[in-house]
Computed example of a mutant assay.
Amino acid sequence: MFSPDKLIVIAFIAVILLGPTRLPVYAQKLARLVKTVRGMADNAKDRMRDEMGDDFDDVDWQKLDPRQYDPRRIIRDALLDEPAVPVTTKASASMAVSEGLTTRAAPPRIVPLAIGEAPPYDNEAT
Rank of each mutant, 00 (worst) to 15 (best):
L101S: 04
P112R: 13
T21H: 03
P120N: 02
P71K: 03
D42L: 15
L80P: 00
A11W: 04
T21F: 11
Q68R: 14
D70A: 05
Q68M: 07
I110C: 02
D42Y: 07
G116V: 06
R104C: 00
L17Y: 02
R32G: 13
S92A: 15
I110D: 02
V59I: 15
R109E: 14
P107I: 02
R73F: 01
F2Q: 08
D57K: 08
R49M: 08
F2R: 12
I115W: 08
M52V: 10
P86G: 02
M1H: 02
M52N: 08
P66F: 08
R76T: 10
L23C: 00
L23Q: 08
V37K: 15
D54G: 05
R76M: 04
D5V: 05
K63H: 05
L23P: 00
D81K: 14
M52T: 07
L17N: 03
K45C: 04
K29I: 11
G100D: 03
G100M: 07
D122W: 05
P112G: 06
A96D: 14
D50W: 05
S3Q: 07
D70Y: 01
E124F: 04
L33S: 11
D122C: 09
T88R: 12
R104Q: 12
V97I: 13
R32H: 09
K45G: 04
S98I: 02
R104D: 07
R109T: 15
A27V: 14
D77V: 01
K29R: 15
G100L: 06
K45L: 12
E99M: 13
K90Q: 06
M52S: 09
Y69Q: 02
I10C: 03
P20T: 06
A14P: 00
N123Q: 07
R49I: 12
L64G: 04
L80W: 01
S3P: 01
A11E: 12
A106G: 06
V34R: 14
E82P: 02
A93S: 11
V9A: 15
P119I: 02
Q62S: 13
L18V: 00
A44V: 02
M40C: 05
D70F: 00
P120Q: 03
T126W: 07
I10H: 07
P71H: 03
G39A: 15
D46E: 15
I110Y: 06
R47N: 12
E99P: 00
I13K: 14
R32L: 13
P20M: 09
A78S: 08
R22P: 00
K6N: 06
P24V: 06
A78M: 12
R47D: 14
E82N: 03
A44E: 11
L79K: 12
A41W: 03
P119S: 07
A96K: 09
I10A: 14
K63C: 05
T126C: 02
D57L: 04
L7A: 02
A44F: 06
P4N: 10
T88P: 00
P4I: 03
P66M: 08
D42H: 11
M48A: 15
E82G: 01
A78V: 00
P108D: 08
G100P: 07
R76H: 03
E99V: 01
L23K: 04
D54N: 09
R22W: 08
K35G: 10
F56N: 10
G39D: 15
P119T: 01
D57N: 08
